[in-house]
Design a protein around this nucleic acid. Structure first.
Length: 541
DNA sequence: AAATAGTCCAACCGCACATCG
DNA sequence: ACGATGTGCGGTTGGACTATT
């Protein structure tokens, strides 16, 4: 038996250690179970031989009896693990091949962290091996600012998931993975979210998960970091420095080096404008790891295209830690000391529909206040103090596009403070969306289906009552705000600019390379076409 | 050459589920 | 039905190795 752990030569335990004829060199702690002291730590060659001999005689299984039959001082678990990962025949050693890598990526896009199931598709590879490989890959790509999934994998997985959802049962797709097993998400959730995918393409990933919960988890564990959808990155931005400079995103930065020059200064200024009490953007490490780098990496590829690094519905659901379950009592989050009240307010805001007479007034929340109200108020105050800047901004926009006191003015002012006469990136999302829609052959003003957005929304609200996305609510709110209340438009602006880059990125991506039918991606019927999006944003080529 | 950071991966741990008596 | 036991799985840890500073 070849005990070589790693043909790359960097295995944890040197061969000579495993080849040691001694079973117990006394260097490793032992655990006891029923009076028997089990050895822990790396296995020796002698132990391997004993275990192999045992399996030859008794077959696999009944691992707890190994000690009884062979005298091997290892617990059953350890025996099973050693056999499965190192000793069983037909194990493939060596580096993951290109083909295997591709398969792993595809499988992970469909399954999530189901290593054992993935291993079943990779003969000779163990779940542990795949898991280790994937975790390393996550770190590597995270560090490099690359999306976790290649766009084509995302699209394939997404399309397959759509297909799976459509057929429900029977034909489950070509891979046999999307079968009606534990990965299946009840159709009621995602079917109803489809109608809103045009607004937030990633909304369906994380139904019922609050921004704060996602962020807190995100900050607490890097394990899920790369799985965060761009939407979640946006939500994260609400809590990070960039929340106070809504137009700024990593994507912008990546495509416009100009942002590099003034990001720290501008962010600090913007933050101060909003009364932020914490320093911003001075720590490059924090900058990379907490918002900019991740955001950047999750959106842009080296070739300038936008990533669609989204796992499928199945994967996302599976990767949610238990406390991200929609049924989790989110109220408990407020008790976390690491969560500033400011951030809680964002959640409260995002979850809350518009306070003024919208169609869904029955779902009005008394929690509609907090950070964004404060932003709204502060921005108005600031705008009053800097009315001249507001007036100048009308050159690049129509009067209706910019409401006095909008965050745009602040951004613009900040930009001017940084020495630039006017941001070259000012770009109307309305026109941007129009481009996208036109590219995909659909008019934003003409719903291609007979069903209006409002009708879809109504239906969705009813059916998504317990599982709706925070971001979805935000979209609802935005629509309402932009239509019914001039004041709300300002706040809608604020939120819109938070989201704008993601939306534009995704729509750009979709319009350029996908074949989604227009009803899936129809923007016009949702009212976003009229949204006064004006924020620093890269122009489409 | 030393220190540091990053990578890799074996092994452990806790939990969930299945089976058995 | 229930507890004990066995098994499988996913997450995490920690040490060796390698690359970089």
């Amino acid at each position: 038996m070849d005990h070589t752990k790693n043909e790359r030569g960097n295995g944890m335990f040197p061969k000579d250690q495993r080849l040691s004829p001694l079973i117990d060199d006394g260097d490793f702690e032992a655990s006891t179970d029923g009076g028997v002291a089990f050895k822990k730590g790396p296995w020796t060659a002698a132990e391997d031989a004993i275990l192999i001999d045992y399996v030859k005689k008794h077959g696999e299984g009944n691992w707890n009896s190994v000690q009884k039959h062979s005298g091997l001082l290892r617990c059953g678990k350890s025996c099973r693990l050693s056999w499965a990962n190192h000793l069983r025949p037909n194990l493939k050693k060596g580096a993951i091949t290109r083909e295997e890598e591709q398969l792993i990526i595809e499988l992970h896009a469909k399954m999530g962290n189901k290593w054992a199931r993935m291993a079943a598709h990779l003969p000779g590879r163990t779940d542990n091996e795949i898991k280790n490989y994937w975790n390393t890959r996550i770190k590597r790509r995270q560090r490099a600012g690359l999306p976790l999934y290649p766009p084509e994998v995302c699209m394939q997985a997404l399309q397959e998931s759509h297909h799976t959802s459509a057929v429900n049962d029977g034909d489950k797709g070509p891979h046999g993975i999307l079968q009606n097993d534990s990965y299946e998400i009840p159709d009621v959730v995602f079917h109803n979210l489809k109608a809103n995918q045009n607004v937030l393409p990633y909304v369906h990933e994380l139904p019922g998960i609050s921004a704060s919960s996602m962020l807190l988890k995100d900050l607490a564990s890097s394990q899920y970091y790369s799985f965060m959808s761009p939407t979640i990155y946006c939500q994260k931005l609400l809590r990070g420095p960039t929340a106070f400079f809504p137009g700024y995103t990593g994507s912008v930065k990546s495509e416009c080096p100009l942002f590099e020059q003034f990001e720290d200064d501008m962010l600090n200024k913007a933050a101060q404008s909003f009364g932020a009490s914490f320093p911003i953007g001075t720590d490059p490490e924090a900058k990379n790891s907490q918002s900019f780098g991740v955001f950047q990496g999750s959106h842009s590829l080296p070739n300038g295209s936008f990533s669609a690094s989204e796992p499928t519905l199945e994967a996302v659901k599976l990767e949610l830690p238990s406390f991200q379950d929609p049924e989790t009592d989110f109220g408990s989050w407020g008790t976390l000391s690491c969560s500033p009240p400011l951030l809680e307010s964002v959640d409260a805001f995002i979850r809350s529909p518009p306070p003024s007479g919208g169609l869904e007034s029955d779902s009005l929340s008394t929690r509609n206040s907090g950070l964004l109200d404060a932003i709204f108020h502060d921005s108005k105050t600031l705008s009053s103090a800097k009315n001249h800047a507001s007036d100048q901004s009308s050159n690049s926009t129509t009067p209706g596009d910019i409401t006095e006191g909008s965050d745009f003015n602040i951004c613009k002012t900040a930009w001017e403070n940084c020495g630039e006469p006017l941001s070259p990136l000012v770009h109307s999302a309305s026109s941007l969306f129009s481009e996208c829609i036109s590219a995909s052959g659909s008019s934003p003003d003409e719903p291609s289906s007979g069903e209006t957005f409002t009708e879809i929304q109504k239906e969705d609200r009813i059916q998504l009552d317990s599982g709706r996305s925070d971001t979805l609510l935000a979209s609802d709110w935005l629509e309402q705000g932009s239509r019914y209340d001039p004041d709300q438009t300002v706040m809608a602006d604020t939120i819109a600019t938070f989201l704008s880059d993601d939306l534009s990125s995704e729509y750009k991506n979709m319009a350029a390379g996908t074949s989604f039918s227009t009803p899936e991606w129809d923007l016009g019927s949702c009212g976003w076409n009229d949204m006064p999006f004006v924020c620093p944003m890269p122009k489409l080529p």
